[in-house]
């Protein structure tokens, strides 16, 4: 039987879970499970956003600053006496404006995404600094903090429900809609899609808008959970989200990537982070482990591909 890349990763996630459950004291305690459930959504949403961009062969280095700016948008509304709903709308609008800006320069002018988002990352950071003067905005209504801290039916955190909904929506958009199909096709060969009558710029624009939307949702959860927003909101997730997407099987050159793979990778990271914490490891060692896993997995991929090719070659010469 042949398992898909994603299923193997799912097994690895399960293995990590069991490993930590055995090793780390209190890993299975309801307290700990709970705290993991509250941490996964914000990171997961950013990782999925990054994955969608990477499927087109791009990268969005500005994604966490888009999230931070969206958070600022929400915070401004909330602290000026507006309700939760207008605050959420404002967060989404701020993010979409950023996404549209990225999308415009990538799709219409054709600058490589890494350069564009490198610039907009600094730019958005600057806008946040200019608005917040470098300090944090805090003090949101209690109802708002329910989004990130409350439970649905008293059991599952709201944020997990929101995450699940957006994960499913993203999965459906990518695999079932014509836009999703074009995203994959564009990622595999953008010249061929152009020669097939696909409006590449439209496909790309939607990708950057959608990634920004997910960043906004993540920002809403984060601001609600922390009850404050600052320029570095979520910035530690930037490189981790790329790592999660790549570990999740997304091809960094584009054309392949699945929501489920990315989610498994997010789980793996979360289990490791949490387990190592419980085991008393320094939090910075988590980064070391994550970085090492990323490189190890890709190195193993390289050798197994090489081995497979050799096998094929061998079979071919024997057959001939």
């Amino acid at each position: 039987m042949k398992l898909s890349k994603e299923s193997i990763l799912g097994l690895i996630a399960l293995g990590t879970f069991l490993f930590m459950a055995l090793l780390a004291p209190g890993f299975l305690s309801s307290n700990n499970i709970n705290s993991m459930m509250f941490q996964i959504p914000e990171f997961g949403l950013l990782a999925i956003a990054m994955m969608v961009v990477i499927v087109t062969g791009g990268i969005d280095l500005s994604i966490t600053y888009i999230a931070a700016l969206a958070g600022v948008g929400a915070a401004l509304m909330l602290t000026n006496g507006f309700g939760i709903f207008p605050a959420i709308i404002m967060a989404i609008l701020f993010a979409l404006a950023c996404g549209a800006f990225n999308g415009f320069i990538v799709s219409k002018i054709g600058v490589s995404p890494i350069l564009v988002t490198l610039g907009t990352m600094v730019l958005f950071e600057g806008v946040i600094l200019a608005i917040t003067k470098g300090s944090s905005i805090s003090g949101f209504p209690d109802a708002y903090s329910l989004i990130g801290n409350g439970y649905y039916l008293g059991l599952v955190p709201f944020s997990i429900v929101i995450f699940a909904i957006f994960a499913i929506i993203t999965g459906l958009l990518l695999s079932k809609t014509s836009w999703g199909r074009r995203v994959y096709m564009y990622g595999s060969n953008e010249v061929a899609t152009l020669y097939s009558g696909v409006k590449n710029s439209k496909v790309l624009m939607k990708v950057y808008l959608y990634a920004a939307l997910l960043a906004a949702i993540s920002a809403i959860i984060m601001t609600s959970r922390y009850n404050s927003v600052k320029v570095d909101l979520g910035s530690s997730y930037l490189l981790q989200s790329v790592a999660a997407a790549v570990l999740g099987g997304t091809n960094i050159h584009g054309g392949y990537g699945k929501v489920i793979g990315t989610i498994y990778a997010v789980f793996v990271f979360q289990f490791i982070r949490n387990g190592l914490n419980l085991l008393g490891f320094h939090s910075s060692l988590v980064d070391v482990v994550i970085g090492s896993i990323l490189i190890l997995v890709l190195t193993m991929n390289f050798f197994s591909d090489k081995f497979k090719k050799k096998q094929e070659q061998k079979n071919a010469s024997q057959a001939a």
Binding site: L172, K176, T177, S178, R181, R182, Y184, M185, S188, N189, V191, A192, T193, Y195, S196, G197, V198, G255, Y256
Partner: peptide, 28 residues
């Protein structure tokens, strides 16, 4: 220019008309 080589024959054939294959849920 003609083909997206890594993708299936189906996906290549339907590429120009993929918009027209939507069902009532806007899914392919």
């Amino acid at each position: 220019q003609g083909l997206v080589l890594d993708q299936s024959i189906i996906n290549n054939i339907s590429l120009p008309v993929i918009d027209k294959l939507n069902n009532k849920f806007k899914f392919i």
